[in-house]
Amino acid sequence: MEQGHVNLTIDGKEILAKDGQTIVQAARDNGIFVPTLCDFRSLNPAGTCRICTVKVAGRFVPSCTTPVSYGMVVENETAELTDLRRALIEMLFVEGNHMCPSCEKSGNCELQALAHRYRIVVPRFPFLFPVQKVEARLQHLFIEHKRCIQCLRCVRGVKAKDGHDIFGFIRRGSDVRIALDVNDPDAVSEETAKKAMEICPVGALIQKRVGFKVPIGQRKFDRKPEGSPS
């Protein structure tokens, strides 16, 4: 075994990972699809969404925050895990007000893409139809709390030029709400709005006045469904 490398198996397939990688990173490097939602490229993982849950030694663990270890045996694409992930996605759908037909994120939405990959036609849980006001007072940003899945990507990933955080969150549990300081000019700039919309996996952070500029057929998941080999 080479220095700094780890052998493990995912669904019976032996792969090689770098020491210190998480299971998700190792899977990606080896062309194995593990669904994620709150995870985002360069950011430190948060483990808030649990979609990446895998089974190791009989225990459910979030693969985005679990480091690989030598000889680890990981279950990923099992019927049990597929149903678990499906249930999580369904829960996210019923907790919010996800109206795909009129949402401008449709076609670029990672939650929608995952639902499609997991062949969801209807949630098994009742719709909650929450009542929440949109935050519309910012000049360049629309915050649709009803679509927020509390992944905290924006909190972790959108920074001002000097590096300070722009987004924070208030309350806890399923009441978590994204918030920002309206007196901070960096927070309310057009550039921040653009970054926020890019980093948000769903249609919760919307840069104003962009709308439906990208026609149907040219959106991200029109071209390539979720879970396709990159």
Binding site: P101, S102, A136, F212
Partner: peptide, 14 residues
Amino acid sequence: QGRPYWEAPVLVQR
């Protein structure tokens, strides 16, 4: 009421 104006053409047609 309360929806952003650019949503109207996509909403209303339904």
